[in-house]
């Protein structure tokens, strides 16, 4: 019983050394998770988020960037808890794209 994230000792290959910038959306993902997990809300704990990206499948885990994984895990958990649905989110995203004047 070994999760696909449980990779201690199982990979070989180069360690990339390029430093990636920390982008605003990435900071925002972390900020939102921190807030949703605080003692006043307890909507998504760190452990739940981890369980999130440990459950969305090895393909997604392999393909997504670090912060995208966290964003997707958060959305999964929020849907699981009935806070929102992916469909609702997707519709809102699509509407925002169609109205380029909005910020």
């Amino acid at each position: 019983m070994r999760g696909y994230h449980d990779i201690g000792g199982s990979l070989s290959g180069p360690i990339p050394r390029t430093e990636l910038p920390w982008l605003d959306w990435e900071k925002r993902v972390e900020a939102i998770r921190n807030l949703l997990g605080d003692s006043t809300r307890r909507v998504i704990s760190l452990d739940e988020m981890r369980r999130g990206f440990e459950s969305f499948g090895p393909e997604k885990y392999r393909k997504l960037s670090f912060y995208r994984r966290r964003l997707e895990a958060m959305i999964d958990i929020l849907e699981e808890k009935g806070v929102l649905t992916r469909a609702e989110l997707a519709a809102a995203v699509e509407n925002s794209v169609q109205e380029p004047g909005e910020t």
Partner: peptide, 29 residues
């Protein structure tokens, strides 16, 4: 052991990926 390339080891978003993620995050917030 499974051999990974540098790209597989650290997935880097391209501009489109970052733009999409930023849009989703803003809407989510």
């Amino acid at each position: 052991r499974t051999a990974y390339t540098a790209q597989e080891s650290l997935v880097v978003e391209d501009d489109a990926g970052n733009a999409e993620a930023a849009r989703i995050t803003t809407i989510l917030e």
